[in-house]
């Protein structure tokens, strides 16, 4: 177990290091820099001052080495766009994204897995409809899904059309804030969850169909076990293995933030922060967001591993040994 934890920790550190360093260096060598934010024709003196402040007057390697030394002390530099420490910006945005991601993951799981079980274990109209809806959800680009949901919210007024909280809760109590957050969550969470739910549904359905074809299922049926029990008690557990495999990646991806969904629904999360940082070539902010993205991806993969082990006890020994 100790070796497993140590291996995972090393992997996480390596992932964060590689992802953040690559992000910093790639952003640095890409055409254009953050001084474009000063306007197309800012004075040369002003441009030079900003470049010096952000170490852009040094070579890319020197800048990277300096950043790395500071990052070791948990100082990730300051954002030019927001004029604030990167650490503070990323932590706040990551917390907002985590709230959204967890709700989206809950919705995706609650929708995708049961529907996958149904469409994988039955034939007929219901399974066909589920399959068709899943394919539509998988095919729609996130930008379109998000805009569609914002449009629906704006026209029906059933839900707020964007944002994380309302102005009205400014003076409210903790419970008011929580209730307000709860009515803002469904729209972005659905936009995030629908394609993930569709992925879970397709995987679960495929896996369930395969499991139902296994000899031990035939044996159970021959023993007179009811079809519903065969699915629930025998086939489902076996069919979970591929789901658990992608679950970790889904957690990591959701926690890293979706810039499209967050951008369109005005959710102040990590994806939007990363997008704005990239667009402005705000190097240290890009590197900070990438580091957080790498970290949550690694955490997601650990969670995926744990779930896999729970779902299939045969793996426990080989994973932890």
């Amino acid at each position: 177990m100790g070796r497993f934890v140590a291996r995972r920790l090393l992997f996480t550190l390596a992932l964060v290091f590689v992802v953040s360093s690559s992000a910093l260096l790639l952003t640095r060598i890409a055409p254009g820099d953050v001084t474009a934010e000063l306007g197309a024709f800012a004075s040369p003196d002003e441009v030079a001052a900003v470049r010096a402040r952000l170490d852009l007057d040094r070579s890319a390697v020197e800048q990277w080495a300096g950043w790395l030394a500071r990052a070791g002390r948990f100082d990730f530099g300051a954002s030019f766009l927001y004029n604030r420490p990167v650490r503070e910006l990323v932590a706040r945005a990551a917390a907002n994204t985590a709230i959204l991601a967890l709700v989206a993951l809950g919705i995706a799981t609650a929708l995708g897995i049961p529907l996958g079980i149904i469409s994988g274990s039955r034939r007929g109209a219901a399974a066909a409809v589920i399959r068709a809806v899943s394919l539509v959800c998988l095919s729609l680009p996130p930008l379109l899904t998000s805009l569609l949901l914002v449009f629906l919210a704006a026209t029906t007024r059933w839900l707020p059309a964007g944002g994380m909280t309302s102005v009205g809760v400014l003076d409210g109590r903790w419970s008011t804030w929580l209730a307000d957050l709860a009515i803002h969550l469904p729209l972005p969470a659905l936009a995030l969850a629908l394609p993930v739910a569709a992925t879970f549904e397709r995987l679960q359905a495929q896996s369930m169909t395969e499991a139902l074809g296994q000899p031990f299922i035939t044996a159970a049926a021959a023993r007179g076990v009811a079809p519903r029990d065969i699915v629930r008690r025998h086939a489902w557990r076996v069919s979970l293995r591929p789901i658990c495999g992608v679950y970790g990646i889904a957690i990591g991806a959701l926690l890293s933030g979706s810039f499209v969904v967050e951008f369109v629904t005005a959710w102040p999360g990590l994806g939007r922060l990363m997008y704005e940082a990239l667009r402005a070539r705000d190097i240290y902010l890009v590197a900070g967001c990438a580091a957080m993205g790498g970290l949550v991806l690694a955490v997601g993969m650990v969670i995926g591993d744990v779930l896999l082990v729970i779902a299939d006890p045969r793996l426990r020994e080989e994973r932890t040994g």
Partner: peptide
């Protein structure tokens, strides 16, 4: 008494929210 500036980064969503009265 009060003026609020909402941060809405996406222009299509901004227009939808204007049309919706947000």
């Amino acid at each position: 008494d009060r003026l609020v500036l909402e941060i809405v980064p996406e222009q299509n969503a901004e227009l939808l929210r204007l049309q919706a009265g947000d």
